[in-house]
Computed example of a mutant assay.
Amino acid sequence: MADKSKVAEQYYAPPPELGKWEGFRVFLWNSETGQFLGRTGSSWAKILLFYLIFYLILVGFFAAMLTIFYQTLDSKMPKWQLDASLIGSNPGLGFRPMPDSDKVESTLIYYRANDKGSVLKWATVIDEFLSQYHKKGSGSGEAPGAENRVPCSTTSANLGEKQVCDVPIDEFHPCTPANQYNYEEAGPCVFLKLNKIFNWVPKPYNNTEDLPTNMPEDLKQHIKLVSGKKEANTVWVSCEGENPADVENIGPVQYIPRRGFPAYYYPFTNKEGYLSPLVAVLFEKPRTGVLINIECKAWAKNIFYDRYERRGSVHFELMVDRG
């Protein structure tokens, strides 16, 4: 008689060997266990519920952090200004036209005065840059904020809460679109603008008592002529050849419509419709067929110059060919 206290011996039977495709089919759906991709329906429900809750909490956390962050920002005014900001309080100069974007490291303006295609290339670049300046405030809604632009002068620049000074682009003759900015005459125009810094107010050199020693003599003479007048409240501009050979080759230079940026355009406070003032520099007769290195500087008591770091100045090269 068998001893019932003894447990019947059990043997492990390995699963039947399946082929590659048969094993894959069973992995996709196992009819015996009811598993899909190795998990039962309840297992899939649990893991999906876990990740749903996890990502909802994660999204909610980041949404809360972004909401708190945006509460500290002002869409019209930077939190950090002037010396407290990364930009600082020393504006630089920019120039137009600039070379193609694929030549980002180049600052060379090169063209052939007798080649209409070469002239048109640069004229088109300037047209695009000046397009916003040609959109006047007529109430037609051509440009956002264009209706806020009003004529200003040294004698009248009292602005309303939303008003900004217009830039009279029609005063830039011969640096005009109709004249192709004088490029065909081998005397090209280059437009200068002062980089925007929020709430920065210039401190102009408006008399001859405190002029820096390194200021060009012709600019000193110009300041002497306007000293004591309202038009002296200007961020002055000068353009010269960088080296002795460049000084000889650059030829006469004109500044249109005036030799700098009037102080009534400042401070920049991000009002809608604001445009940076411009100075068109006309190089009347640069020597052709020669590369000329040019440096333009902005002059004010609170603009500090450093050639190597390009502070308060801009460098570009000009080369005009006749053929």
Rank of each mutant, 00 (worst) to 15 (best):
I126G: 01
D218R: 10
L219P: 06
L318A: 09
T40M: 05
I292V: 11
L194K: 10
G38P: 10
W44Y: 07
L86M: 06
G323C: 01
E17Y: 04
L291R: 13
N302C: 04
E128G: 14
N293Y: 09
T154G: 03
E309W: 12
T213V: 08
E22G: 01
P91R: 10
W44P: 03
V104A: 12
Y266W: 12
R322M: 13
S156D: 05
T67G: 13
G19F: 02
K6I: 15
T213P: 00
V150A: 14
A45H: 11
T213C: 00
A123F: 02
S31Y: 14
G323D: 14
K4A: 13
V279E: 02
Q35D: 15
R287Q: 14
N302G: 03
C296T: 08
K79N: 07
K203H: 05
Q71V: 02
A232L: 09
P212V: 02
C239H: 07
S43I: 08
K297E: 07
F316A: 09
K136E: 15
T124A: 02
K135W: 04
W29T: 08
T33Y: 12
T154R: 03
N293P: 06
G289A: 08
N90L: 09
L18M: 09
D218G: 01
A13W: 05
L225I: 13
K271D: 04
G41H: 11
P277M: 05
M65C: 10
R310N: 12
P267C: 13
N148T: 09
A280D: 01
G38C: 10
D127Q: 08
G289D: 06
R311H: 11
G88L: 07
G273L: 07
F316W: 14
A263R: 04
D115A: 06
N207C: 02
K76L: 08
D127C: 06
A45R: 14
K224E: 15
I292C: 05
K20R: 04
L82H: 10
N270M: 04
S238C: 02
S118F: 06
K4N: 11
F27Q: 04
K196L: 13
P78G: 09
T154V: 09
G41Y: 13
S89N: 15
D218H: 13
P257L: 14
K271H: 09
A280L: 02
I303C: 07
T176L: 12
W236Q: 00
S75M: 07
F304C: 01
K230L: 07
G187I: 05
G137N: 14
S238R: 02
G187A: 11
M215A: 03
K224V: 00
I109D: 00
S42K: 12
E22Y: 02
N249I: 01
S75L: 08
K196W: 07
W21Q: 07
N179Y: 04
A123V: 03
T107V: 14
F198S: 03
F36R: 09
T124C: 00
V125M: 08
G251A: 09
L159P: 13
W80S: 08
E284L: 05
G23L: 09
D210I: 02
G141A: 09
P15C: 05
H222R: 12
A13V: 15
Q132D: 15
D166M: 14
L58V: 06
D100K: 04
R310W: 05
S238H: 03
V164R: 13
W200A: 04
A298G: 10
G241W: 06
V119T: 09
D306Q: 10
P277L: 04
G94Y: 01
F283T: 01
D115W: 06
N90E: 11
K271Q: 11
S43N: 12
V226G: 00
G92T: 12
